[in-house]
Design a protein around this nucleic acid. Structure first.
Length: 554
RNA sequence: GCGUUCGUGGCUCAGUUGGAUAGAGCAACGGCCUUCUAAGCCGUGGGUCGAGCGUUCGAGUCGCUCCGAACGCACCA
């Protein structure tokens, strides 16, 4: 926000002038000036602890420093007053005109409010979900999908250049397993007696896949030799599973810019990466296998990259994959992994360091586990399939909006207790309905206004007519939005936006109680209607970052 | 045993590079609909921030120790 820059600029000039005047000791190592919105509104619109932070450098008491800064800027027109409080906080009270001007700017920006200027950063890539194409997505993937897509949206709103990617684990044992499982179901459905593979996938979705194949192609693969049939069924099952993944994700408001197949890394890119590491001495041979010297970079033990039988491990492919990602020119790579993969971080980073990349540019976000509760009881995983409720079932039960909001309302590194009953409730107890209701109410106001011939038209609203707390509190909540996006982006923290949307809705509901829009004077009604419009845009935008819809009516 | 994350009112959780009297929702209790959706609003009660020590002008936030929970510790992915 411009005002913030204005205040920070003024403080800088004041400090400089105080130093030049010999009032403050000269220094070029001053702390950054951070403005925050104070915890209570009696403390003004913005405050800074700069005087406290810099007390040591200036060797002066914080209050004295604050006084010196204050006297040098307090006459500025955009400022109402500055107060020094507590141990040396400086509280800035903006002139109302500035607030009205900010509001007018936001009003002018229309639906673009919330899109921050481009940062012109080196592109960031974020990889998430990356589930095996061997079954349906479950709720754990759902949390990852919600978090990843929200983080992408937030980073883009903050002005970063971001690309999202899904890494398809379509090579290795699990694909053979998929083929064997579908094969068994295929034969079973065609009346053959077969033993189900030992580590096969027991889910009902495997039967569905086999059924689809029979529906389309009949029993034409029955007579083929086992080997050949497995190969064909693997391809068919893979295509089906991948299509299912894409369908579920799309329904869950998740779209990827690119889908990267692990198969494209085998064998050339994997071998090339191994060769480089070998040449650099980071990989050695022991017991017939090839090992990565990851202990050197803090891992607990060295890791096998190529097995005794000559087959590369998952790690080998992952090294080749991350090498490829770095080589594509991304400045930052973000991986969103389930917390159960945390042991993997050290080895991948070790390999990247050995390959000459800066491992700090690979940020791995860990997502904690989800527990579902229904009727106050933990919903247990199925014993036979070892799987929890699928994402598809969850969407059917509670709806996409509620599912996404509930996944996003907690910080990603906090375990999530998902209350299915609460998510289903269509009442104010349910935060997502509470927020959506605020938006629906706003749309309703516009419908009502139109009926009495009131609309925004082209005349600029006279915002200065709004002087009550209910109005000004709502305005200041809206003014916080860009900052909130900035912070949510910097911290990869969608829950900040979830909370912000809730707080904004609450502020609006209070305003709605205190301030009528229809039936007040024409100019005041116009100004309030404009504020309502801005509020509606902001709620819609913040819900949009979360991938939650903003209904016109409820 | 080692590692990662977490431990904040009865429950689920926020808490902005360490800052001003620790905040919400749910649950409990009491009010508010002849006027723009009561799917709402207003109010009350409830917390030694797991325990201890340390760093600091100042610690829920940083460090160490301990206790507790989840997850992980494969030549599986």
């Amino acid at each position: 926000m411009e005002v913030k820059e204005k205040i920070i600029g003024a403080i800088k000039i004041a400090v400089k002038s105080a130093m030049e005047g010999g009032v403050l000791k000269n220094s070029d190592d001053l702390p950054e000036i951070v403005l925050e919105v104070p915890p209570r509104k009696e403390f003004g619109d913005f405050s800074t602890n700069f005087a406290m932070q810099s007390a040591k450098i200036f060797r002066t008491s914080p209050r004295k420093i604050a006084e010196e800064i204050k006297t040098r800027i307090e006459s500025a027109a955009w400022l109402d007053k500055i107060e020094i409080a507590g141990a040396g906080f400086m509280n800035f009270y903006l002139s109302r005109d500035v607030i009205y001007q900010e509001l007018a700017n936001i009003y002018g920006a229309g639906e673009n409010f919330g899109q921050l200027p481009a940062k012109n950063n080196q592109p960031i890539q974020i990889e998430y979900v990356s589930a095996n194409p061997t079954g349906l997505l479950h709720v754990g993937h759902g949390r990852g999908a919600a978090a990843g897509s929200a983080i992408v949206n937030i980073l883009r709103a903050a002005g970063y250049d971001v690309e999202s990617e899904f890494y398809i684990n379509d090579a290795g044992n699990q694909m053979e397993n998929l083929a064997k499982s579908v094969n068994a179901r295929y034969l079973e459905l065609l009346g053959k007696n077969v033993d189900f593979p030992e580590n096969g996938y027991h889910g009902a979705d495997i039967i569905d896949t086999a059924k689809k194949i029979i529906e389309r192609d009949g029993d034409k693969y029955l007579g083929l030799p086992e080997e050949e049939r497995l190969k064909i069924l693997e391809d068919l099952a893979y295509a089906d599973k991948l299509a299912e993944l894409k369908k579920d994700l799309s329904e869950f408001q998740v779209e990827f810019d690119s889908w990267f197949s692990e198969r494209t890394l085998h064998p050339d890119k994997v071998n090339a990466a191994i060769k480089i590491l070998r040449d650099k001495g980071a990989i050695y041979e022991k017991d017939g296998a090839l090992w990565l010297n990851s202990t050197k970079h803090g891992d607990e033990k060295d890791r096998v990259v190529v097995r005794e039988n000559g087959v590369p491990t998952y790690l080998a492919a992952d090294i080749a994959y991350h090498k490829n990602k770095f080589e594509r020119g991304f400045g930052t790579l973000i991986n969103l992994w389930g917390a159960d993969h945390h042991g993997y971080i050290a080895r991948v980073k070790a390999a990247m360091t050995e390959l000459g990349f800066n491992a700090d540019n690979l940020k791995i976000l860990l997502l904690q586990m989800v527990s579902l509760y229904r009727g106050g009881e933990l919903v247990k995983m199925s014993k036979r399939t070892g799987e929890s409720i699928t994402l598809r079932e969850l969407m059917e039960e509670v709806g996409t909006d509620a599912a996404r909001y509930f996944f996003l309302m907690r910080s990603i590194d906090s375990q999530l207790d998902f209350d299915l009953d609460l998510a289903k409730k269509q009442s104010s107890e349910n935060p997502v309905y509470y927020i959506q209701y605020a938006h629906a109410r706003i749309c309703s106001i516009f419908r009502q206004a139109a009926e009495v011939g009131l609309s925004l038209g082209n005349n600029p609203p006279q915002f200065e007519l709004m002087t009550t707390d209910a109005e000004l509190d709502l305005v200041s909540k809206i003014l916080e939005y860009p900052d909130e996006i900035e912070k949510a982006a910097a911290e990869f923290a969608p829950q900040r936006i979830a909370r912000y949307a809730y707080d904004l809705a609450a502020q609006f509901h209070s305003f709605y109680r205190d301030c009528r829009i229809l039936g007040v004077g024409r100019e005041l009604a116009h100004a309030r209607l404009a504020l309502v419009r801005v509020t509606g845009h902001t709620i819609k935008h913040s819900l949009g970052l979360l991938g939650v819809s903003a209904p016109q009516s409820m």
